[in-house]
Amino acid sequence: MPGPLHGIRIVELAGIGPGPFCGMMLADHGAEVIRIDRPGTTPNPRDPLLRSRTTMQLDLKSADDIAKLRDLVKTADGLIEGFRPGVTERLGIGPDVLLADNPKLVYGRMTGWGQTGSYAAAAGHDINYIALSGALGAIGRAGDKPTPPINLVGDFGGGAMMLAFGMVSALLGVKNGAPGQVIDCAMTDGSALLMAMMWGFRAQGIWSDTRGTNMLDTGAPFYDTYETADGGFVAIGSIEPQFYALLRQTLGIAGDALFDAQFDRAQWPAQKARLTEIFKSRTRDEWCALMEATDICFAPVLGFDEAVAHPHNRERGTFIELGGVVQPAPAPRYSATPCDPPRQP
């Protein structure tokens, strides 16, 4: 089966980061995605973000090639572009033009700051967008500076996946009789939205603005990573009382009064210091033998190659090899319309 988006055609104006990731998501799930590259560009076959695409080369400063692009977009359901605000308008392929050509078109715009606002015309990267949204300021250990979570939160979580969701939502709207429309997808907006639960916790008085002091940001001893005797690391997430009780039992601290008050923040530093000693007493593999696949909420912290080789990931096919390149498989999965395997650009 070709996936649930079979029959949908998307035109993707070549870019970097979140635009290609959005195109990859749509292509993974069955859409025909045609990527428009500059003349002379050779798609990198080792880049998973470009998989499952057909590429056309057009000079967007050429009137003839702009006409070709407009003709192509007339046959499309959606378009992805990641230029700064106003660029496609100056090229003659802005929303007004293309929606006049194709009133059912879903015109997806991927930017960092958005199409409007005082920062809209400025350059930026993931780190800047999540800084402005408040997400970056909440990530890091107590007493340390904010730690960028690679570029997962802005580019891919708050950007590409939000745009993919927006495009599929708007395409569903068109199917249900709505007109085509423009999607203004900003990584500042998306990364702010990803923090919704923390805003809720803050409103309830159970989240501090001081990073590294909360239950989910390494403040809690039962939700953190710990170094093992061999220099590896394990991840513990024993939040619920029954899981915490199992953690204590397995570590041999069930009768230690220090750990009785799980949510007493005043006890957390001492509890964490004791757990640090305990976890350093055995190797990562030894802890896996005791805790893996239990209700402790445990996992070893794996590197790239280790993640690929882990039995659970192998059993599920979480990673695939395409053209000699190991990469994540498409997700999520469908029971009735499973996706075709990805193909090289």
Score class of each variant (00 low, 15 high):
residue 314 R to C: 07
residue 181 Q to P: 13
residue 202 R to Q: 14
residue 175 K to E: 15
residue 220 A to E: 06
residue 251 L to H: 02
residue 272 K to V: 03
residue 184 D to T: 11
residue 310 H to Y: 11
residue 187 M to I: 08
residue 125 H to M: 00
residue 230 D to I: 04
residue 3 G to S: 10
residue 268 W to S: 03
residue 163 L to A: 12
residue 190 G to I: 01
residue 263 F to P: 00
residue 53 R to P: 11
residue 234 V to C: 09
residue 136 L to K: 11
residue 238 S to V: 04
residue 336 A to T: 10
residue 143 G to R: 01
residue 165 F to P: 00
residue 207 W to Q: 14
residue 5 L to A: 08
residue 83 F to L: 08
residue 191 S to P: 10
residue 38 R to V: 14
residue 8 I to T: 15
residue 131 A to C: 07
residue 237 G to D: 01
residue 297 C to W: 07
residue 335 S to M: 00
residue 291 M to V: 06
residue 248 R to V: 01
residue 340 D to W: 03
residue 59 D to F: 10
residue 179 P to K: 06
residue 239 I to E: 04
residue 250 T to I: 13
residue 7 G to C: 09
residue 212 G to T: 09
residue 328 P to L: 03
residue 56 M to Q: 14
residue 241 P to M: 08
residue 40 G to M: 08
residue 91 L to R: 05
residue 344 Q to L: 15
residue 98 L to F: 00
residue 168 V to D: 03
residue 178 A to Y: 02
residue 136 L to Q: 12
residue 222 F to M: 15
residue 30 G to C: 13
residue 108 G to R: 07
residue 287 W to N: 12
residue 36 I to L: 11
residue 26 L to Q: 09
residue 343 R to G: 11
residue 20 P to S: 13
residue 209 D to V: 03
residue 205 G to W: 10
residue 275 L to R: 07
residue 240 E to R: 06
residue 3 G to F: 09
residue 244 Y to T: 12
residue 197 M to E: 10
residue 99 L to Y: 00
residue 180 G to P: 10
residue 35 R to L: 12
residue 281 S to W: 08
residue 252 G to R: 04
residue 143 G to V: 03
residue 41 T to Y: 12
residue 81 E to R: 00
residue 273 A to I: 04
residue 153 V to C: 04
residue 99 L to M: 04
residue 252 G to V: 04
residue 226 Y to I: 02
residue 165 F to H: 04
residue 2 P to H: 13
residue 219 G to P: 08
residue 50 L to G: 11
residue 256 D to M: 03
residue 291 M to F: 13
residue 316 R to N: 02
residue 119 Y to R: 14
residue 169 S to L: 06
residue 9 R to L: 09
residue 177 G to A: 11
residue 150 I to T: 13
residue 172 L to E: 09
residue 54 T to E: 15
residue 157 G to H: 03
residue 259 F to V: 09
residue 277 E to A: 02
residue 166 G to A: 10
residue 37 D to Y: 13
residue 89 E to F: 02
residue 141 R to I: 02
residue 317 G to N: 12
residue 24 M to I: 09
residue 289 A to I: 01
residue 235 A to S: 15
residue 43 P to N: 08
residue 14 A to I: 01
residue 246 L to R: 14
residue 174 V to K: 05
residue 40 G to F: 09
residue 340 D to F: 03
residue 6 H to I: 10
residue 149 P to Q: 05
residue 264 D to A: 14
residue 218 T to G: 03
residue 314 R to I: 14
residue 68 K to N: 03
residue 313 N to Q: 06
residue 293 A to W: 10
residue 210 T to Q: 15
residue 249 Q to K: 13
residue 8 I to C: 15
residue 18 P to S: 15
residue 137 G to P: 05
residue 296 I to S: 00
